[in-house]
């Protein structure tokens, strides 16, 4: 891997390697195409409580 290349160039040079956060069908498609992908089973953080989420972000959690 050539470290002088910027991250976009590295992406376009491939191979694409994906963290998929959300719709699982996107990960299934990529898997079927032989693309490295990890599915993140996301759910709203802090039970979806905005104030709590902002607080977590401020704490760097």
């Amino acid at each position: 891997m050539d470290d002088r290349k910027d991250p976009i160039q590295k992406l376009l040079d491939g191979p694409v390697s994906v963290v998929n956060i959300g719709l699982a069908q996107f990960a299934r498609t990529l898997e079927g195409e032989g693309v490295a992908v990890v599915q993140v089973d996301w759910s709203p953080p802090a039970g979806g409580d905005r104030r709590l989420i902002d607080l977590l972000d401020k704490l760097g959690a």
């Binding site: 590295k10 694409v16 390697s17 963290v19 998929n20 956060i21 959300g22 719709l23 993140v40």
Partner: peptide, 23 residues
């Protein structure tokens, strides 16, 4: 499956793209 970006990256350390489709 991992439940956060951080644990996802531990499973796939060479990842170069995140697809985000949450609400």
């Amino acid at each position: 499956n991992p439940r956060s970006l951080e644990t996802g990256l531990r499973a796939l350390p060479g990842a170069n793209l995140a697809i985000v489709s949450v609400p």
